[in-house]
Amino acid sequence: MRFEFIADRPVLDFLPTVAERGHADVEQLTAPTDFAEWAVQAGIVERAPDVDEAGLRHVKALREAMFRLVQALIDGTEAATTDRELVNGAAAGPLPTLRLDVDGVHRNGDLNSVLTALARDCLELHASDDRLALRWCADEHCTRAFVDRSRGARRRWCGMRGCGDRAKAAAYRQRRRTTIL
């Protein structure tokens, strides 16, 4: 499976592994190997970590806690203590190791180190100026959060490919309908 990486932050690219939350709830991590592939495609590690069914359940629980933390951050509400504790616990682990060889830098780690990297990115998001520019995609079915770094802070979609293209095409079709009538 190919995953989409458009958010410039690992945690914001990880959260939409459940797409269309509240509508279709499309789960993209249906097998342990799905998360292992996601970690490699995200560039967190270069070799897929071992993930079993229990590990996948933990991955999903952490993802949902991080989603609720980001949701609370955007909505200006207080995050649940259990979500903070779960993410703080994951962030306390060891990060993937970096090693410089003749052929470049290599990133290696197990499941826990990948989750540590994601949890730390979630916490760093809360501490960075990016938290002030966090937005939800304007597409009614998309539940991606993104950092609006546009001039004027008027960005509406998580990305132009996909949500932005669909919105512009729909607006064009609507304009064509009204001019024809």
Rank of each mutant, 00 (worst) to 15 (best):
L98C: 06
R99I: 04
R99K: 11
R99M: 10
R99E: 10
L100Y: 07
D101C: 09
D101H: 14
V102A: 14
D103T: 13
D103E: 15
D103Y: 07
G104N: 05
G104M: 06
G104P: 03
G104I: 08
V105Y: 09
V105W: 13
V105R: 13
H106D: 05
R107H: 15
R107E: 08
N108Y: 09
N108E: 14
G109D: 10
G109K: 05
G109T: 11
D110C: 12
L111N: 02
N112T: 10
S113L: 03
S113D: 02
S113N: 10
L115G: 07
L115C: 07
A117H: 15
R120P: 13
R120Q: 15
D121Q: 10
D121H: 07
D121F: 06
D121E: 13
C122I: 09
C122N: 12
L123N: 13
L123W: 14
E124F: 10
E124S: 14
E124D: 15
E124W: 11
L125N: 12
H126A: 15
A127K: 15
S128C: 04
S128L: 08
D129T: 12
D130W: 08
R131I: 03
L132K: 06
L132G: 01
L132E: 08
L134A: 00
R135K: 03
R135G: 00
R135I: 00
R135F: 00
W136M: 01
W136V: 00
W136H: 03
W136E: 05
W136Y: 04
C137N: 01
C137I: 03
A138T: 04
A138D: 00
D139F: 02
D139Q: 00
H141E: 03
H141R: 07
